[in-house]
């Protein structure tokens, strides 16, 4: 079972929910897809780390063969190539590695080279296998790293996918194969606005989903109101609790420390299982 945890903004509690759900399950694989700023590993402190580089294919010109026909430039829909002073300039970070320019070049002047854009670290933290995607600083897209991490997962285990914030390509890639999506929202107007964005996204992808309300109090809650208007089931309410905040800011996994949180996240997991396999 693959459970994706997402929210329209940063700081809503994705990592809190994802980390604690993984820690609350018997055996789980936690995958940190927030490759620009992965932080789940700070909580898990995984051991026995194994690192793999992630490479993408990028074109490189052999200038002696190029006759300036510009077929490659006209073909590239991402505009990753420019022709200046009888030379092709490749914008590596704009290239989506489709390989079209290489296939198309009548002069066979375009070569393919591997370019490292980041890495994947895998380690163990008690009952949880922790997989962390890390995008190199300055790179534009983490999609190839996310794709690589999610391609390697099987069906049997419980996979918790900690998504990047927002609703752009990297999030779509992260939820693409998920069996269930959890939308984490906090109780502010801004939180409700961002909840609406991911609500629209999971609808587009036709995913079963539910909400978890974080930093929950008895006060007016715009996110809760949104959920009731749209008939979104709320699977858990995580209280606005100073102690939880302290544990979290010290990178301590609440489930491993406090019985009440162990129960809360076990119940959340059970409900998700119930939703997916009734």
């Amino acid at each position: 079972m693959k459970i994706a945890v997402l929210s329209g903004k940063g700081g809503a509690g994705k990592t809190l929910v994802a980390v604690n759900m993984a820690a609350a399950s018997k055996n789980a694989v936690y995958i940190d897809c927030d490759v620009e700023e992965p932080n789940g590993h700070l909580f898990f402190k995984p051991e026995g780390l194994y690192t793999q580089n992630v490479v993408v294919k990028t074109p490189e010109l052999n200038p002696s063969k190029c006759n300036g026909c510009r077929k490659c430039i006209d073909f590239c829909r991402f505009n990753a190539l420019a022709y200046i002073g009888e030379k092709i300039k490749v914008f590596d970070e704009v290239c989506h590695s489709c390989g079209g320019c290489i296939l198309l070049c009548p002069q066979k002047a375009m070569l393919e080279r591997d370019r490292v854009i980041g890495r994947i670290e895998t380690g163990i933290s008690h009952n949880v296998k922790v997989i962390t995607g890390i995008l190199n600083t300055g790179e534009a897209s983490g999609v190839p790293i996310i794709r690589r991490m999610l391609d390697s997962i099987s069906e049997e285990d419980t996979f918790i996918i900690d998504c990047p914030p927002g609703s752009a390509c990297v999030v779509m890639e992260s939820i693409k194969d998920a069996d269930f999506c959890i939308l984490v929202a906090e109780s502010t107007i801004f939180g409700a606005h961002n909840l609406a964005m991911v609500y629209e996204l999971v609808g587009l992808f036709d995913k079963p989903f539910a909400a978890v309300l974080n930093k929950y109090t008895d006060d007016d809650n715009p996110s809760e109101l949104f959920c009731s208007k749209k008939h979104i089931p709320v699977l858990a309410k995580i209280p606005f609790d100073k102690e939880l905040g302290e544990l979290n800011s010290n990178a301590i996994i609440a489930v491993r420390e406090k019985r009440e949180y162990k129960l809360l996240f076990e119940e959340l997991l059970a409900k998700v299982y119930q939703e997916v396999r009734p």
Partner: peptide
């Protein structure tokens, strides 16, 4: 012609100027 590009509009527009 770069105005409607999905991405890389600046590169294509600069190519037009070149």
């Amino acid at each position: 012609s770069a105005a409607g590009s999905q991405g890389g509009a600046g590169i294509k527009a600069a190519q037009i100027i070149v």
